[in-house]
C-alpha cells in the first residue's frame, strides 16, 4: 500500500516537473497552455490520490481535492486561452493553420 502510493506520488511529481519545463520551453502562449493544463492537472491528480492511498483514512478528502482540480483546471485554462485570443496575442511563426476567421466572433481579427 505504502509503496504503491509512493510510486503514484512519484509519477505525479514527475509530470508536474515536466509541465513546468514545458511552460519554459514551448514557444507561445497557446502551446504553453497545452503543457500547463495537461501535465499539471494529471500530476496534481496522481500526487493527491497517491497521498490518499498512503493514508487510507484521508482517501475521501484527497479524492475531493483531485476532483475539484480536475473540474476547475480546464475551465480556468480555457478562460486564460480565450483571454489571450481576445486580447490579440499572436500565434507562433511556425503555426500551420489559423481557422479562427471562420468563427463568428473572430471574423475581423488579423490572421496569424
Amino acid at each position: 500500500m505504502h509503496i504503491a502510493g509512493m510510486i503514484a506520488i512519484g509519477i505525479g511529481v514527475l509530470f508536474l516537473f515536466l509541465g513546468s519545463f514545458g511552460i519554459v520551453r514551448l514557444p507561445d502562449v497557446y502551446n504553453r497552455l497545452q503543457a500547463g493544463t495537461k501535465c499539471t492537472t494529471f500530476g496534481c491528480l496522481f500526487a493527491v490520490l497517491g497521498v490518499g492511498i498512503v493514508e487510507p483514512a484521508w482517501f475521501w478528502k484527497a479524492l475531493l481535492v483531485s476532483l475539484f482540480v480536475l473540474l476547475t483546471n480546464p475551465i480556468s485554462n480555457h478562460a486564460l486561452g480565450r483571454a489571450a485570443k481576445k486580447s490579440g496575442v499572436p500565434l507562433w511563426d511556425g503555426s500551420v493553420v489559423d481557422k479562427s476567421r471562420d468563427f463568428p466572433s473572430y471574423a475581423n481579427t488579423e490572421k496569424l
Binding site: 514545458g22 502551446n31 507562433w92 481557422k99
Partner: peptide, 14 residues
C-alpha cells in the same frame, strides 16, 4: 516537451 527538436505543428481548427 522533452524531445530535443520539439516536434510540434500548432494551429487552430474548428
Amino acid at each position: 516537451v522533452v524531445h530535443p527538436k520539439m516536434p510540434i505543428r500548432p494551429g487552430i481548427v474548428v
